[in-house]
Design a protein around this nucleic acid. Structure first.
Length: 883
DNA sequence: TGTATAACGTA
DNA sequence: CGTACGTTATACAC
């Protein structure tokens, strides 16, 4: 016979959320504001599963209001052994309650009572109202609630997603007693997690035996005289404990509540609120999907369009006059999105929030004059990843001007620390609008190209543009419009230009390195008597620590380090020819590998092209990839040879490199307004010599190389948050000496210390740091209770304005130089940016003028209280031009 | 086939 | 126990 009784489910929210908190990694669940969400995610995920399996008709989640209740008043140490609730957890509870409410689920709490008392009360009243009751709790005390109408679902040790069912039968089977007797046992045995001490030497077996014989603690104590031995003595002496425990673990089942079981009938979710909360604040993409699916408003596996989501305007496919008319009619921002088939431009989508147009593009097949002029004109346009799309347009011979917002850049500027994928359009659409963008059917091998798709994508761009822009503070808006957007065409010119490579140089070095590597490998194998894979840290560990019995090095996650520094240390402590051969082999193979990577990137025109990622860093720097040209070796003589392969192309006269000297120290001098450091940069004296003379109290001429090394390490380390410990390690000096050095340094350059401290304090207050030009970086972890996280955030926070301002400055320099080159119609080209360095290819006859433009552009990129020093070099290849 | 780790190149 | 990046090979899970 089907069970037609209504089913009431009551959940202990706190205990289950707490389990979820420890079951899911904290770091993987953080929203862009730094709010942790792992407990919320785990709880809701589990809740959905239970709801699906149990299908309750009535539902409530109970929460503790605080850790204090009538129990702590009776026994102050109740639950006293519990560690302070992690703040990362605490902050999640209000949000969880909000989410549950949005999902139409009642949350209940009651001053002075614990959640379990609410559960007990609702369970009892539910049964009285003729309901089946399911209690969901991670607290064993709730076993006492189990009876023929009440089942307990208890999370198993294996994780939150598996729940064990406690019915009267399973309780009998597990404990040999009736469920209502469980607290008698718990009172005798004690409960460590509640800080309730039991009777010494009484474990579960003894307690069960007594309860089976006498039934309750009271009765057992009445017969205490009959119990022999040590446990009998203990029981008589410690009976107060048992009585107290029994009082405390009895759940109160008549708590006064504003609502009863019958008020808890399942409610429909508030779809708008759920969408808003899950997409914007919690950033749970798949969970939202599941919540909505459960509600029956959409199929599993895809997010239903929001009930109130605007429908995409019909797309008009246009050419000729119709298109011209449409373009003329637009007064505000228009979103543009391109479509390609293969490498060819195939179509252009144009959209405002109200109107969409699609232009199939095939050069020479129609009249595109109006569109081409419009794209090249200053009508305001919005694109997602405008740098990429401009590149596509340029490839088709079309210009693009008037870009007023790049939604990808804007997303990065407000959250530069987020995962790369969160800057993708579909993520932004979901985060801002709570809507899933339509995706091509993945089961179609050749996806149908809906004529509407490209314009509809543009429509989504146009809809996120407003909210994104509204989200930008004036400083960030300035960075977007004055730095990042104008930089895009400059970067694209650089990417398109590439840099000429002399492959014969690379091939020669590669061959030399191959010989070296092979020889060193052979000799290394001879040393140990067998072959190993020298590229495998795991195999090397076996050789070094097992076979050769060398002392253990720095621990890594998987064993002991075999990095170059560890090997060098080993060579000192326990010299072995194998070590040196291994190091040399590493160096040779590393260079081979670098060369091979470069060779793969050489185009048919003998030039190599990188892609700059404008959203690739947390600080505002560019990153370079595919291949990365910002980490070409320079430090050793052999490795520098690789740079001789970077040459000027045919028709050009030379390479020119220009780099900022000590730009980060100069920025520190400017920001800190430290008089000593500012003087250092105005004095014309070598910076480290000047600082050394101050720190060691000698004439600049008497600063020894050792002194210079020390202050140099200190100066550079400053901007990274270097500690005395780190300084001592780097300089191989005692920690006390490092500390002394820092003290001396700061006694002469106290402004620097004050500034660095101030940056962190300001960031703690504001929640973010700011560069000279207004670029922000948020730092949620500055308030973390986790020391490692917090101190990491502190170092990042003190470094960010420095590194970020340097990034701003060189970007501004690039803009100025590019503009000047264009204005003068020069043929020379900017090729590379390596954080504080620019590389140019100089056309015949332009060297003198280029040198001036570069010096002026870089030197004048910021107005600091110290000069920006620029070092320029010229030569046939990157090595020769460098310094 | 994809992911994590160790290692190492740059500013 | 010094910031910011990208790429590679190996090892291992699937």
């Amino acid at each position: 016979m089907p069970d037609t009784k209504p089913t009431l489910m009551v959940i202990d929210g706190h205990s289950l959320a707490f389990r979820a908190f420890f079951a899911l990694p904290l770091d993987n669940f953080v929203n862009s504001e730094g709010q942790h969400t792992n407990a919320i995610h785990g709880f809701i995920s589990m809740l959905l599963l239970i709801l699906k399996n149990e299908r309750p008709t009535h539902l409530a989640v109970a929460f503790d209001i605080s850790r204090f209740s009538f129990r702590t008043r009776e026994f102050a140490e109740y639950k006293g052994t519990r560690a302070e609730t992690p703040p990362e957890f605490k902050g999640q509870i209000p949000l969880l309650e909000e989410a549950l409410q949005a999902m139409g689920i009642r949350t209940i709490s009651k001053e002075d009572f614990e959640a379990d008392d609410i559960l007990a009360t609702l369970a009892k009243r539910g049964v009285a109202d003729g309901m089946q009751v399911l209690v969901v709790s991670g607290d064993r005390d709730t076993i006492q609630l189990v009876n023929g109408d009440v089942t307990l679902l208890y999370p198993s040790a294996r994780g939150v997603s598996e729940l064990k069912r406690y019915t009267p039968d399973t309780v009998r089977e597990r404990y040999g007693i009736e469920p209502h007797q469980y607290p008698e046992i718990a009172a005798l045995v004690g409960e460590t997690s509640d800080n309730l001490q039991g009777i010494d030497k009484v474990g579960e077996k003894t307690a069960v035996k007594w309860v089976q014989q006498w039934g309750t603690v009271d009765e057992i104590l009445a017969h205490a005289d009959e119990i022999k031995g040590v446990v009998g003595n203990n029981l008589r002496e410690q009976q107060d404990r048992a009585l107290r425990n029994r009082r405390l673990n009895r759940l109160v089942d008549d708590v006064e509540l504003p609502i009863g079981p019958l008020d808890l009938a399942r409610q429909p979710i508030d779809e708008g609120k759920v969408r808003e909360l899950f997409s914007q604040r919690l950033q749970f993409r798949t969970l939202l999907d599941r919540v909505l699916a459960q509600e029956g408003s959409g199929a599993e596996g895809e997010i239903a369009p929001a009930a109130n989501a605007p429908k995409a305007p019909a797309v008009h496919t246009m050419v000729d006059e119709e298109l011209a008319t449409w373009l003329e009619r637009q007064s505000g921002d228009v979103a543009v999105h391109l479509e390609r088939t293969g490498d060819a431009l195939a179509g252009i989508g144009l959209s405002t929030e109200a109107s969409s147009a699609y232009v199939p593009y095939q050069a020479g097949t129609g009249d595109y004059d109006a569109l081409v002029a419009w794209l090249a004109g200053d009508h305001p346009k919005v694109l997602h990843d405008a740098k990429l799309q401009r590149r596509w347009l340029w490839a088709a011979g079309l210009e693009l001007e008037g870009v007023v917002l790049d939604t990808r850049i804007a997303a990065w500027l407000v959250a530069p620390t987020a995962l790369a994928k969160t800057y993708e359009l579909d993520h932004q659409v979901f985060a801002i609008l709570g809507e899933a963008m339509p995706k091509p059917d993945p089961t179609q091998l050749v996806p149908d190209v809906e004529p509407s798709a490209t314009a509809t994508i543009a429509w989504y761009v146009s809809r996120i543009a407003g909210p994104l822009r509204a989200n930008l503070d004036p400083g960030t808006l300035g960075v977007e419009s004055d730095i990042e957007l104008p930089l895009q065409p400059v970067l694209t010119r650089m990417e398109n230009a590439g840099v000429a490579i002399d492959d014969t140089v690379l091939a020669r070095i590669h061959a030399t390195m191959r010989e070296k590597a092979d020889g060193h490998a052979r000799d290394a194998f001879a040393e140990i008597g067998h072959e190993v894979n020298l590229g495998s840290p795991k195999q090397l560990q076996t050789v070094l620590f097992d076979e050769l019995g060398m002392p253990k090095t720095r621990a890594t996650k998987t064993g002991y380090s075999t990095d170059a520094k560890s090997l060098a240390d080993l060579q000192e402590s326990s010299p072995h020819a194998f070590l040196g051969l291994l190091l040399q082999h590493r160096e040779a193979t590393k260079l081979m590998q670098i060369i091979e990577t470069l060779q793969k990137g050489i185009g048919p025109d003998a030039r190599i092209r990188t892609t700059y990622d404008q959203t690739g860093s947390n600080t505002g720097r560019l990153s370079s990839n595919d291949p990365n040209l910002q980490n070409i070796p320079i430090r050793t003589d052999v490795s520098r040879e690789i740079r001789t392969a970077f040459v000027h192309g045919e028709g050009f006269e030379t390479l020119l490199t220009a780099d900022y000297s000590q730009i980060e120290m100069r920025i520190m001098a400017h920001l800190s307004e430290d008089a000593g450091l500012i003087e250092a940069f105005h004095s014309g004296e070598d910076l480290h010599r000047f600082v050394g003379s101050r720190v060691f109290g000698v004439d600049p001429a008497d600063v020894t190389p050792l002194m210079r090394t020390k202050v140099k390490a200190m100066s550079y380390g400053l901007a990274y948050g270097l500690s005395a410990f780190g300084l001592s390690k780097q300089l191989r000096i005692p920690q006390s000496e490092a500390k002394q050095l820092m003290l001396e340094y700061f006694s002469r350059f106290g402004g620097v210390r004050d500034y660095l401290r101030g940056v962190v304090m300001q960031a703690k207050d504001d929640g973010y740091t700011t560069t000279i030009f207004g670029r922000r970086r948020p730092f949620p972890d500055l308030h973390s209770a986790n020391r490692v996280l917090r101190e990491n955030a502190e170092r990042q926070a003190l470094n960010s304005p420095i590194q970020g301002s340097a990034a701003d400055i060189i970007k501004r320099a690039m803009l100025a130089i590019d503009a000047q080159m264009l204005e003068e119609g020069l043929r020379s080209r900017m090729l590379l940016q390596v954080h504080d360095e620019l590389v140019f290819e100089v056309a015949a006859g332009e060297l003198d003028r280029m040198t001036e433009i570069v010096r002026e552009g870089m030197g004048g990129a910021a107005d600091l209280s110290v000069p920006l020093d620029v070092a320029v070099g010229v030569g046939p290849n990157w090595d020769a031009a460098g310094h």
